[in-house]
Amino acid sequence: MDSSLRDLYQEIILDHSRHPRHFGPLATANHMAEGHNPLCGDRVKVYLKVDAKDRIEDVSFEGRGCAISVASASLMTDMLKGRSVAEAERLMGGFLNLVKGEDAAELESDDRETLEVMAGVSAFPMRVKCATLAWHAMKAALDDEGAARTE
């Protein structure tokens, strides 16, 4: 088997895709947006509860898609809980760099380590959109745009 395939479908990614964390709607959410990739039909809804101090108190997602998009969404929700909105946006910037194979200097080293499992996507340009869908939805939710799309 191709070694880039092993990098892409690491055990931890498969685990997130089979058992997504924070899966399902969030009744207390005050921000929500849907991400849609019309090319492959992947859909993900991201729910956020942001408190008065701009802190992400709770987060969840639901939707369906390939292993990469589900794992990425699951991993993202795992990381966002308890972070400030500004931190969430910095994480997203770093993540986008990481999956494009670029330097992600803005990430703290432990965040970088966590997100590094998705870095294998950079060898699959056609699949980068799958990995970034949930993050774009998260950003659209924070910006109250309602929807995000990657094509």
């Binding site: 880039s4 395939l5 479908y9 090319l39 492959c40 039909g41 898609g65 390939c66 292993a67």
Partner: peptide
């Protein structure tokens, strides 16, 4: 248990070109 895109990606790395997706037939 394997999404069509994951399947198509793996097949591609094995040299096998197939289409994965909705085939313009939603």
């Amino acid at each position: 248990g394997i999404h069509a895109h994951d399947l198509a990606t793996i097949l591609d790395r094995e040299g096998v070109a197939v289409r994965g997706g909705h085939h313009c037939a939603q």
